[in-house]
Amino acid sequence: MPPIDIHVHLLPRICSPIDFSGQVAVVIDILRATTTIATALANGAKAVHAVQEVSEALMVAEQFIEGEYLLGGERHGEKIDGFHLDNSPLAYTPEVVNGKEIIFTTTNGTRAMAHCRMAKEIHLGSFNNLSALVNRLQEEAPKEVHLLCAGTDSLITHEDVLFAGAICEKLGAPSDQVEPGNDTAKLALDTWKTHSQSPELFYKSLCNSRGGANLVKLGFDADIRRAAELDLYEIVPNYDPKSGKITA
């Protein structure tokens, strides 16, 4: 495998879309967008259509007949009025989403996807599909990989940084073949190594993160537990910025 430089970006607002131009990007929103999207696709959804605004979601819904689609997402952690589903991965069961088009908008995750629009490939990562994602990156063997953390309300979130560090380690950094391309990647790798020494410590770190604390307040503790599960799925969601469509 040729050498890979891994670049970690802690927030969309502190990097430019041009940073991703022609590169392979991974969008990270552990709590909960990328976890939920992976769940929906693994459970049989035809596609997830990522949009930025509620009004866009309603316009996309007009392309389908009643029963073909579901509106899903959240604003500040809570279900949007008139939507079928919120942003809980536990809501996207096979019985609910199989064969459906999911039209999806969230506070942070879908905006992070659009920020990577100049990348040649845009993958979505979660702990639920960590190994599948790492395998895909190893197969693609790009010269650079750019990991974008979505954050929470324009602030850095520990859970996204943890996942970025997990990718760095799984790809083999630091080594002759895989090198942190910026100090933020080194920071993420150190964070992951410190907080993944036991399943209990890892789960506690997710709960104590900015995103985790918000979910605990809203009563979504079970979503954090699900987001912490490693390698539930063997799929890699891919985002097409031209259409906004995410497929496995």
Rank of each mutant, 00 (worst) to 15 (best):
G244N: 02
E56T: 05
V27I: 12
V134D: 04
H146G: 09
S126N: 10
G73K: 05
V26N: 05
K46D: 09
P94S: 10
R225K: 15
A112E: 09
G22R: 00
I37W: 04
E121G: 00
K217M: 03
N87M: 11
N43D: 04
D240A: 09
R117Y: 12
V60Y: 07
I4R: 06
D190C: 13
G22H: 00
A185P: 03
I80L: 14
H49R: 09
F220P: 01
D221W: 02
K79N: 09
L201G: 14
G109H: 07
N87D: 10
G181W: 03
L90I: 05
G212Q: 14
N128M: 12
L137Q: 04
P17G: 06
D29R: 15
E74Q: 10
R111M: 07
V51R: 04
S175Y: 02
M1C: 05
L10C: 02
F163M: 05
G109T: 01
C149I: 07
L41I: 01
L58S: 02
T194C: 14
H115E: 12
T107R: 10
T110C: 10
A222T: 10
Q138H: 11
Y92E: 00
K143I: 00
L133I: 11
A25R: 01
T152A: 07
Y239A: 03
P17T: 12
V8A: 05
G73W: 04
G212M: 14
G125D: 03
N135W: 02
E68K: 15
L70H: 06
M113Y: 03
Q63W: 15
G22K: 00
V216C: 14
F64K: 08
H123K: 04
A45N: 01
F83I: 07
L11H: 03
H76T: 10
D183V: 13
Y69H: 15
C116G: 07
C116K: 01
A188Y: 05
L70I: 08
I224G: 13
A112Y: 07
E68V: 14
R136G: 03
L171Y: 03
A227H: 05
A57S: 08
A33Q: 12
Q177A: 13
R75N: 12
S209H: 11
V60H: 06
I6M: 07
E95A: 15
A119F: 04
S205D: 09
I18P: 00
V97M: 08
A173F: 05
K186A: 14
N108S: 11
D81Y: 01
G82W: 06
V96H: 01
R226P: 00
A222N: 13
S131P: 09
N98H: 09
L155P: 00
Y69M: 14
R111N: 11
I156V: 14
G82K: 08
A112N: 07
E101A: 12
V96C: 04
G212K: 15
I18R: 13
L162Y: 06
T93H: 11
